[in-house]
Amino acid sequence: MIFLYLLSFLVLVPFMWMISIAFTPEEQAFGQVALIPTDPTLGNFETAWIDANIFRAMTNSAIVALTVVLSNSVIAVMAGYAFAMLPFRGSFAVFVTIISTTAIPVSVTLIPLFLMARGIPLAGGNDIFGQGGSGLLDTLAGVMLPYLVLPMNIFLARQYFSMAPTELAEAARIDGAGEWAIFARIYLPLARPLIAVVAVFSFVGVWDDFLWPLVVTNSAEAQTVQLALARFLATGNIQYGPLMAGAVLATIPVVILFLFNQRAFVSGLADGSVKG
C-alpha cells in the first residue's frame, strides 16, 4: 500500500508541474522550482481558450473520438470475438495480417492515406471515380478515416475473449441460440472491462493524434485539439503557459471518460465475473 502511494505520487509529479505552469504567468514559466505559483493567473487559460479556440477544437475532437469509440466497440470487438471464439480456416493468417499493419511507421503510410482520403468517391464534390473534388480532405469524416477500425482493438478483443469460458456458448447453442445472439446477449455484456478499455484507448488515441489531422485538415473549422495546441509550440517560441493550460483543459474530458469507465474494472472481482 505504501508502494502504491509512493508510486502514485511519483507518477503525478510531472503532471503537477504542468498544472503549476498552466497557472504561472508566461514570463515566469520554468523559472524557479516552485510547485505553487507565486503570482497565479488565469491568463494562460484565457489565451488557450481565445487564441487557440480550444473549445471548438475539443468539440471537433470529441465528435471524431466518440464516433471512433462507437465503431471500434462494435466492429473491432466483433471481429476479435470471432477470431477467439469462431475461428475459421485461415483466420489466424487474417488476424496476423491485420495486426501487422500497425508495425509500419505513420511516416510511410501518411501520403497514400492522404491520397485515398482525397479520392473517396462521391465525397466533397468527387465523382463516382473519386475525381474532381477534395474528397474527405478538411472534414471531420476525413480525420476519422484511419481510426474507425483499429487493428489493436481487434487484437485486444481476441486476447480478452480467448480467456472467456466456452461452456456458455455451447449451452446456448444447444438451446438453439444464433451466433449473433450468443455474442450480443451473452459475451458482450460480460466484456464490460474490455469495452471500457477499447473506449478509453480509442478515445485517447484519436484525441492525442497529431500527424494525420495535421495533413488532412487546413481550416480552423476542422481543427482538432492537438492542432489547436500546436499553435503554442512554435519552433523557437514555445508558449509554455498557454500550452500547459490548453493541455490541462484537453485532459479533462479524457479524465472524466476514464473515471466513468474505470468502474467496469471493479465489477468483475467484486460481483464474480461469470455467473454460470
Binding site: M78, F88, V108, T109, P146, V149
Partner: peptide, 26 residues
C-alpha cells in the same frame, strides 16, 4: 466457420482498405 467470417468481414474489409493498402503502397 461462416458466421466467424461474417463477424470478421466488416473489420477486415476496412482494415484492408485503409491500413493494408497504404502499407502495400509503402
Amino acid at each position: 466457420h461462416v458466421v466467424g467470417m461474417l463477424f470478421v468481414l466488416p473489420a477486415a474489409l476496412y482494415v484492408l482498405t485503409f491500413q493494408f493498402v497504404p502499407v502495400i503502397y509503402g
